[in-house]
Write a protein that binds this DNA or RNA. Structure first.
Length: 351
DNA sequence: CGTCTTTGACCCGCGC
DNA sequence: GCGCGGGTCAAAGACG
């Protein structure tokens, strides 16, 4: 990877030199542990003291993380001890990282997940806490690989059409596929700058590597990670034409921690969400009878007004402007993947 | 039989 | 130029 890995990696000694101070507080954490408490003091917030108050504001949003407007590069990453991650987890160090802790086997993220493209919700465990963040989307200085991949994807779509046409024309599908494979090795169109997909990572204390998040994934690769005994798995969303990928690996520092990195934006509805929505349409249950999953889903999508934060700063964790209930706030800025992932974090309060 | 995982091969960018 | 490492491909096998 690029040298930026190292850059971010080095941040890890910034604020959390003592691992025990890290945001993981098994089974207790929520997003507020790092943001609201920063306002109210105590707990993990203590560890945030010394952070640039602008960088870690209780009103800081993931949006800000992504666009880099409010966070100095790597600041939060340092705050949350990126050393929990293999340096490469961050790619170039521009990634939004959220920690959702304490997922045991059997737990899944599905109730809290949704999908992008407008109805975005996201994978998150019920016990979530923001752990670290840095932006990725705004910076266009990654290695050429990403550009290449994006170009490749674009070209692939054209080629798929081409292949379909060839098939229609009677050319053997296998041959067409081979043609495509050859094309993949030829130089890409020049001069095309493609925007990178934002990546969004979260850490989960989990016994299982691949957490259920409501989407269907196909594993397409696994690689040994340098300096880590744990392999990294590569998954792709199985939905047609959905570009979303995710990488799953265990922290080499803390094997109980699973790091999931999402990349891209779902172009379809989450199967889980679709099911829930269908159930709602067919037989809308009274609130009391609604499934926990669905209620959680709705809860997670409630809009949050700043005033609410101020009034309930002990409960509300992270302000995420833009991630508001689709019912009330149809205008959601396009934050790519983040849009898919973050709404689940937009409101989480403890009883 | 369709779907998914496994796994070795391959490609590419980067640093030396 | 070469080696390394990350990421992807795709054939083969497993599974339900």
């Amino acid at each position: 990877m690029s040298g930026e890995d190292g850059e971010l990696y080095h941040h890890d000694h910034g604020f959390f030199q003592d691992r025990d101070e890290f945001a993981f507080q098994d089974e207790r954490d929520d997003l507020s542990s790092l943001f609201a408490q920063n306002q109210g003091g105590g707990g993990a917030a203590n560890s945030l003291q010394g952070l640039d108050p602008y960088a870690v504001s209780p009103f800081l949003s993931f949006d800000d993380f992504l666009d880099g407007s409010a966070v100095r590069h790597g600041t939060l990453a340092s705050a949350f001890d990126a050393s929990y991650l293999h340096p490469d987890v961050f790619g170039n160090g521009e990634i939004t990282l959220v920690d959702s802790t304490a997922v045991k086997s059997g737990n899944d993220l599905a109730p809290l997940t949704g999908c992008g493209g407008g109805d975005g919700t996201s994978p998150v465990s019920p016990n979530s806490s923001v752990s670290s963040s840095s932006t990725e989307a705004a910076v266009e200085d990654d290695s050429g690989r990403r550009k290449k991949d994006q170009l490749k994807q674009e070209v692939d779509e054209e080629e798929e059409e081409e292949i379909k046409q060839l098939k229609r024309q009677g050319k053997a599908g296998e041959e067409a596929e081979r043609d495509k494979a050859k094309k993949q090795n030829k130089p890409r169109k020049k001069g095309e700058k493609r925007q990178r997909e934002p990546r969004f990572a979260f850490m989960t204390k989990s016994e299982v590597d691949h957490l259920e998040d409501g989407y269907r994934w196909r594993k397409y690769g696994q690689k040994a990670v340098k300096n880590s005994p744990f392999p990294r798995s590569y998954y792709r969303c199985t939905s047609l034409k959905c570009p979303v990928k995710k990488r799953v690996e265990r922290s080499y520092q803390d094997p109980t921690v699973v790091i999931t990195t999402y990349e891209g934006k779902h172009t379809h509805q989450s199967p889980a969400t679709a099911r829930a929505s269908a159930q709602q349409l067919l037989a809308p249950p009274p609130p009391a009878a609604a499934s926990t999953s669905f209620r959680n889903h709705l809860l997670m999508q409630q809009p949050r007004a700043p005033s609410a934060i101020q009034q309930h700063n002990a409960n509300v964790s992270v302000n995420l402007p833009g991630f508001q209930s689709p019912l009330q706030q149809p205008q959601v800025a396009d934050y790519g993947l983040l849009q898919d992932i973050v709404p689940s974090f937009t409101q989480y309060s403890e009883p």
